[in-house]
Structures are given as structure tokens and as C-alpha cells.
């Protein structure tokens, strides 16, 4: 190996070289792969001083395991069961994913699907689906969907409440299954509240959706076709579906996790609180035009909110399980 520019290498390692010296070193390095090897090896020796300590090693692992537990994804392979999932509570959010094999008796073909089950038990969780549709899943709600939406339609199953912002794809309808009704979507924003044995309420913010009912024989019946601003209230016991116009503003702010109000009347705020807490508020007429500014956070209970309002204005209130009475 010809002339080695010793001083250039040493100065580089000690970080005392000028730009001009760095340029000369660069030229020399480019001459030959052997030059690069020599240089790299010498730098490695010089830097071996910066070895890490055992303490750094264990601190690093602590940090890594913290980062991992924040996004714990469970993978489990189950053969050949219909659907099972494993779940673990991590920071209040449960994310589960399971793989199962679906055997088709008449073919030898074996298909692998990944079924994602997201159970959210704390706050509102924002989920982006494989087709870029976004779902804001409420507390104590469960969303199930196929990993790639590989079928003819994009099927998701909801138990609980969620706000949907669906990516438009005319060739692949987006279907939300909840209880025995399904909501067929093309590209739209809407909110669903569903509970077993209770009413399912679908509120459409924009776009268009069909609310369908599938009976035991698999026949599908369209119960309602919603227009923006309409809400369908489906009663599974009587199998009746009522449609009415509603104020959709609440749902668009709900997904952001907190409801803010800026110098709004008590009447408006009370209506939003009825939605938010799922209760009735009986507000005395004298208070209706009173104005407030503030916000309701996801962790707030009706008791918290009433106490805050009470602190700022001399009102009287009484909370019963179904109705809140507010008077002057």
C-alpha cells in the first residue's frame, strides 16, 4: 500500500483536520478499497474506547421494553377454529391479532387470514384500517376486521360506539356489521352506537349509507337509506327503524376526544351532554340562555362536569340515574 497520509488519518481521528485536509483524505480513500479498509479499521480501534457499560445496557433494555409494551401486538396461530383471539391490557388499550386457517372442504386450497380484533377499554382510540379508512373507537368498544380486506367487500364488525371516516371505493363496499344489522357504505362519515339487546343508532355526517337487516335465512332487507344529518334508530326487539334529522356537530367533535364549547348557550351544551353521557337533562328555561366556555374531557363524569359548572355559576342540580335536573 503506497504512501499512507498518516497525519491526515490521525488528524481525522482526533477531529482536528481542516476541510482541505479532509478533502485530501477523501481523495486518498477513493483511490483504493484497501485505503478505506485501513482507515475504517483504525477508526474502529480508536473508537473502541467508547464501549458501553452494563448499566447502559440494562437501561437500554428497559427503554426498549417500554417502547414495545406501548405497541404490543399479539400474534397467535390457531388451527382450525372459527375465531379466537388473545388479548392483553396494555395502557388501557387492547390490541389483538390472530391468525387462523379456514379449510374449505371441497378444495385442498388453504387460506390464511389475519383477523384483527381491537378492543378499546379506555378513552377514544383512532384506528387506521388497511384501506386508509379511519375509525375512532369509543371506550369499551370492539372492532374486528380482516387484515387485508381481501374479499369482495370491506367487512368490519363493531360492538359498541365508533365514528367512521370511510375511504371511497365504489368497487368494494364498506360494510359495518353490528348485531343483526349491517350498514353499507360507499365513502362517508358516520357514527354508530350499538349495544347488545339495545337500540343501534347510526348517525350520518356526510355521504350516503344503507342500513340493512339480515334475517335468519340470510335475506337482506334495506331498512333505511340515510341522508347527511339523519339518524337511524333501530330497535332489535321490535325490528323497527326510525329515521330523524339530528345535529351532527357533536359527533365530529366527539372523535377528537374532548368536547369544547366556546361561549355557547347552556341549552346547546346540555344537548351535547345528553349525547355525551347518554342521559336526559332537564334544564330550567331561565338558564337556557346562560353562556359557557370550556370543555368536557373523555375522563369526565357527569358529576365532574356539573361540579365545574356549579363552581362558576350559582346553579342547583340533582343527578338521578336517568335524568339530571338543573335549576336556578
Amino acid at each position: 500500500m503506497g504512501n499512507v497520509p498518516e497525519e491526515l488519518i490521525v488528524r481525522h481521528l482526533q477531529k482536528t483536520s481542516s476541510d482541505e485536509e479532509e478533502a485530501r483524505l477523501h481523495e486518498w480513500l477513493r483511490e483504493d478499497e484497501q485505503h478505506v479498509a485501513l482507515f475504517c479499521e483504525m477508526r474502529e480501534i480508536m473508537h473502541s474506547r467508547n464501549n458501553i457499560t452494563d448499566k447502559e445496557l440494562s437501561l437500554g433494555w428497559d427503554e426498549l421494553s417500554r417502547r414495545i409494551s406501548r405497541q404490543m401486538v399479539f400474534r397467535k396461530r390457531i388451527i382450525p377454529v372459527w375465531l379466537r383471539y388473545v388479548a392483553a391490557t396494555v395502557a388501557g388499550i387492547i390490541v389483538a391479532s390472530s391468525v387462523w386457517f379456514a379449510f374449505r372442504p371441497h378444495t385442498v386450497e388453504e387460506k390464511v387470514w389475519v383477523q384483527n380484533v381491537i378492543y378499546n377499554n379506555n378513552g377514544i382510540q383512532k384506528i387506521t384500517l388497511p384501506d386508509n379508512s379511519v375509525v375512532w373507537l369509543n371506550e369499551n368498544s370492539k372492532l374486528t376486521y380482516n387484515d387485508h380486506f381481501s374479499g369482495e367487500q370491506r367487512d368490519v364488525t363493531l360492538e359498541g360506539n365508533a365514528f367512521f371516516e370511510v375511504e371511497k371505493d365504489v368497487s368494494k363496499p364498506f360494510i359495518v356489521n353490528t348485531g343483526n344489522i349491517s350498514i353499507q357504505v360507499i365513502g362517508t362519515t358516520f357514527f354508530i352506537r350499538s349495544c347488545e339487546e339495545k337500540h343501534t343508532i347510526v348517525t350520518l355526517v356526510s355521504g350516503g349509507i344503507n342500513v340493512n337487516h339480515t334475517d335468519a335465512d340470510g335475506n337482506r332487507l334495506t331498512l333505511a337509506r340515510l341522508m347527511p344529518g339523519q339518524e337511524a334508530d333501530y330497535n332489535p326487539v321490535t325490528a323497527e327503524c326510525y329515521v330523524k334529522f339530528v345535529d351532527t356537530d357533536y359527533y365530529t367533535v366527539w372523535k377528537d376526544g374532548s368536547y369544547r364549547f366556546n361561549n355557547e348557550t347552556f341549552a346547546t351544551i346540555a344537548r351535547q351532554m345528553e349525547h355525551h353521557f347518554g342521559i336526559k337533562i332537564q334544564l330550567s328555561p331561565q338558564l337556557e340562555s346562560m353562556r359557557f366556555t370550556g370543555r368536557i374531557m373523555p375522563e369526565h363524569t357527569i358529576e365532574n362536569v356539573m361540579e365545574i359548572i356549579h363552581r362558576s355559576r350559582p346553579i342547583k342540580y340533582r343527578i338521578t340515574p336517568s335524568i339530571v335536573y338543573i335549576e336556578e
Binding site: 479532509e22 477523501h26 480513500l29 477513493r30 478505506v36 475504517c40 479499521e41 474502529e44 473502541s48
Partner: peptide
Amino acid sequence: NIQLKNRLLELDYYVSIEKQII
């Protein structure tokens, strides 16, 4: 820029673990 160039040249050299001597 020239220091960065030298660093990148160095990274190009490490195509596998065997290149590391320590």
C-alpha cells in the same frame, strides 16, 4: 460536506459484519 462524504464512504465499506475487526 466533506466530512459527511468520508463518513458515507466508510459506511459503504461495511457490507457485512465480517468487516468489523473488534
